[in-house]
Design a protein around this nucleic acid. Structure first.
Lengths: 193, 193
DNA sequence: CGTCTATTTGAATGTACTCAAAAGCGGTGG
DNA sequence: CCACCGCTTTTGAGTACATTCAAATAGACG
């Protein structure tokens, strides 16, 4: 088994105890996809064929605002999942972009294979219930931060909470995540040196 | 069966096909709770004992920012679920408030009863996986709106998308949802008359 | 009717933005 | 090796949007 699949397997083991046959059946539905820096995993308007687990690299999930500027929803690194959940679920055109900021390696699964797993492996429902609950909780926290904190605090919190991600990003990327202009971010950083 | 339980049952039927015995087992874990206008269902700092399905009324889920001002996460009406998902899941002190804006009726379930159901009714995992996926998608949409739209548009979108909720709210409430001062909301409304 | 709450309006303020320009930094090719 | 190019970061000036504060008006409820 390649290192990528081992990583995914460990992710599953972290949540639930699957039998060997179940795990094999699950892993068989994933396949490796490589992205070069700047490659798109998903573009707005296209219907997403896959949902992905990241085994290497860094990708950014973002939308475009009315002025055409990128607003980052989040950065995902090793062991994170990415997808336009709505578009993938309903097999509709995506509203967002997913793009590699570094050369990356993903394990992807199609909608039909996922449905097959839900049918054939009962514990899948529980696995994805638990994982979805966690990402829902994380998203809610992000939204609350946006609602209650100043840009300065969001900046400090982000580099404290995700130093391993922040260090791989430049100001342009971080600014688009925090929802401020990169010029303003530069001034924020100066205030906290 | 009271109307409240019938409503919850219909909610379940909308998602999945449960057997009669399963439904009975599930419904038996819920009980009715009434809230008067201004009553709290949950307060920050307290560990939530229940998660709730709303059968009547209108509740607001919100947090306090650093200045002590209320920032609304969302308003929930009939057929919506409310809880501080993180706090309920991990049985930790809540970070948010849930409060009735109208006299309301809820069906509540405790964490232990929910765990019991996950153990005894296999389809529960699927039910809550599907429901959590949907609310996750809705939350993501809300966040994208906040990131990409101006206050004017968010206002117009909200009253268009949720006219049945907006009409039950005053400006103070809507402003706290949109993330603007109520004075400014008043000026927004004037612009669009 | 009177009181309390909600809404509107205006003036002054502040926060973050845009635009423009300069400085820094890294990589590439001559 | 260094000169140049593209990209990032910093800085400043002027501006726009939204806020705060204060006061007047309107509405709702007992």
């Amino acid at each position: 088994m390649t290192s990528a699949f081992k990583q995914l397997r460990e992710q599953f083991d972290k949540h639930l105890e699957f039998s060997e046959t179940e795990l094999e059946k699950i892993l068989a539905c994933f396949h490796v996809k490589h992205l070069r820096k700047k490659d798109f995993f998903l573009e707005a308007g296209k219907t997403p064929r896959y949902e992905a687990f990241i085994t290497k690299g860094l990708v950014k999930q973002y939308v475009l605002d009315l002025d055409g500027k990128e607003r980052t929803i989040y950065f995902a690194v090793e062991d994170w999942w990415v997808s336009d959940i709505n578009a993938f679920l309903n097999q509709q055109p995506a509203t967002m972009y997913i793009r590699a900021l570094e050369d990356s390696e993903l394990l992807v699964i199609s909608k039909s294979d996922k449905l097959k797993l839900y049918k054939e492996v009962p514990l899948m429902d529980r696995l994805f219930r638990v994982m979805t609950q966690k990402s829902h909780a994380a998203l809610q926290e992000r939204m609350i931060d946006n609602l209650t904190k100043t840009a300065d605090q969001r900046y400090l919190d982000y580099i404290t909470k995700y130093p391993h991600i922040a260090s791989r990003l430049n100001n342009l990327q971080i600014a688009s995540y925090l929802g401020v202009s990169h010029e303003f971010l530069s001034k924020i950083k100066k205030r906290h040196m």
